[in-house]
Design a protein around this nucleic acid. Sequence first.
DNA 1: GATTATACGTA
DNA 2: CGTACGTATAATCA
Length: 879
Amino acid sequence: MTDSAKPTLLVVDGHSLAYRAFYALPVDNFSTKDGQHTNGIYGFLAMLINLIKAEKPTHLAVAFDTSRQSFRTREYAEYKANRSETPSEFKGQIPILQDCLAAMSITVLQKEDFEADDILATLATQAAAEHYDVLVCSGDRDTIQLVNDDITLLYPNVQGVSQLKRYDRQAVIDRYGVPPEQYPDVAALVGETSDNLPGVPKVGEKTAVKWLNQFGSLDELLDNADKVTGVVGGNLRAHLDDVRRNRTLNRLLTDVELPVTVAELEVKPMDAQAVRDIFARLEFKTLIPRVAELAGIEQQMAAVTSAAAVPMPAAAELAASELLAWLEAVEGEVGVTVLTEGGQPTRLGVATLEAAAEATWTPELAETLGSWLASDAPKIFSDAKAQVKALRRVGLRVEGLAFDTIVAGWLLRPSFPDKNLADLVDRYLDEKLPEADPTQLVPETEGATPGQLSWFTMRVTEALRGELPESVARVLTDIELPTLLTLADMELAGVAVSHGTLSTFSAELGERADAIAQQAFQAIGREVNLGSPKQLQEVLFDELQLPKTRKTKTGYSTDAAVLADLQESNPHPFLDLLLQHREATKLRQIIESLDTAIGADGRIRTTYVQTGSQTGRLSSTDPNLQNIPVRTDESRRIRSAFEVGEDYETLLTADYSQIEMRIMAHLSEDPGLIEAFNSGEDLHRFVGARVFAVDPADVTPAMRTKVKAMSYGLVYGLSAFGLSKQLRIEQSEAKQLMMEYFARFGAVRDYLRSSVEQARIDGYTETIFGRRRPFPDLASPNRVLRENAERAALNAPIQGSAADIMKIALFRIHEEFMSRDLRSRVLMQIHDELVVEVAPGEWEVAEQIVQDRMGDAADLSVPLDVQIGRGPNWNEAGH
DNA sequence: GATTATACGTA
DNA sequence: CGTACGTATAATCA
């Protein structure tokens, strides 16, 4: 490519290429855990590294614009004036990118009043004069004019920065039909919309090139404009000044005074430590080795990257008594790993940061280690819950849980939780956890043993602790870890569910669904799959000619809300039958999935996913017990199948009433809302009385419905549009309602606004207890993304604080049941509700404990109201 | 067989 | 154009 005898200068337009990378790379994949966006930085550096590797420049510089202002804007105020505001999340990446370049010892140039391209032009011209080979890398077309026999342009493809096209003199002629020095003439005629430089109307590249070839030069063309025929000729004559102005502005300066000479741009050795530090901070794991290779400093980099890469210790295989002695000799924390098969322990490994030991699981081992496991001796797990459960199945309890790497990792980045220890080792240690290749019968690579896994757990813990803000660390130890141990017991307990009740109901619903389907087929004269949205669209919109509804990706929606609307505007028996069919089959689905989940002992055991939400809530899977129907009388029959277990007396349900609105009252300190909760009056009646300026006694059901929807909607960032849709009222009325509401409860609005504002500043939201959730999208240039983030950010502290409070109440109840030797036990958590199985004779004490611990879980400026119910099954207890 | 889209259950 | 979840089915992809 380049003459190896000659030095090669590579000059790069940092701004334009980073900007392309910014739009080419998905921001979600390129954000650090504290919310810093890095897609532009990453994309630019990846490209630059490839470029250096391929071109091996001897001299190198990157130029940046200083601002939107330059001598060009002074000459022509409208220059680039049409460009939308540079997204702030991109702007923020530029200084960091410059820091990266500095660490890599790459010269960064920028100069007030000049654009990056002028700097490129100056350097390129000087270097060419000094017989360098020059490579100019820019995304700005104006740099085409620089190309000559010594200067080659590397120009990114439209897709982004992954492909650079090489323009030498011939390539420019082939592509544009004019030599490089004439390209600015073409550009001047055509104009540049992105720079707000209008050209001659109706003149594109083709016409411009034709004219230039015809007249020989732009000056000749402009002097002889009257010889150009047709409409475009007229246009040309009307826009001569525009063309001249364009030509002036698109000429790059080649005499910008710079603080360096070309010779001084010689490639220098990198500061390995600085590169490692900044790349680590930006979480650019994969770039570190690439840079190192490039700079020929693998060894230096390896030395620093693996400064902590202590060789993995071999785990000593010990007998039970030896293992106990080993553990008792440890002063501080111990990493613990329990391997399981079928929910039973098979191996156990322990480790400190220095050494590891392990043993195969035997009854003797259980006997020997039981009291150590149940002691306060601090233990650290990765994903403790399943292991704690396995130990409980063989009769052992775990106490002294001091850390869980998976839970800690989730608290740090709830949006992208790392699923296992290997992920954490990769992210926080930048090493690979040795894993056996599961596809090979006799794996070539050995996986880490349980002792070694514990050792990695300890090292990951050390790294995570360095990253956990204090408030988040408190959430871990004060809320999550006690909750984890409680959830293990709840999952093991399960809940008794009556197969008979479910199967009777299921059969009934099956028959009904079939009958409804037959009627529905009659109504439209043919059979379709009622479960297929696609087929339904044909029926509704083609055959029945019903008006088109809300658009979806693949057509038009047929969801329940849409069908109900259609039924109102265009009544048709098929619509109602379809809705009924949906309802019956949906219930049946839920019942069937529950039924198959009933275990041999008649109980269903769910798994609570502690790291499954972004707000701090739990989720429940396999089966999900947090979405059991409740809204209709009929669906509640499912809940009646959830029964008190054998040897127990009754079920107890306890739920927080309006906990989110209470948190809102507390956080906003709105005097009206606080008074509402302290008054003992029904919340919506109280609010309704204020909003509609009537006596509480005179609040009509319609008023109550409206303020209730408004109150609940607030927590989700509801708009007037959404409120009007839900209440089926005019948008103007919804707007009016919101105005009245905020006139009386203004502090609520102030709080919501300021909390989003604070999140924009901090990059994250925080619950009352210090749980954080990052929101990088609050700075997004994309309005949809940004507004979604705003609503989520508004909701997160409220939903998250409620989750915190419930978790605190939950584990305190569990702990008190245990410490008081009660048999009663918590079975389920449904966000703001607990279901407890009460042992005979324990009702009074259990009720008191639940009431008290839920009531005093948090000290808010309003009371926490707890509703308790009792019954032989969930349905009756829930009333 | 795995993935995507739609729909719908809960707080 | 209302937050947070999990799951079932049909349609579509490889």
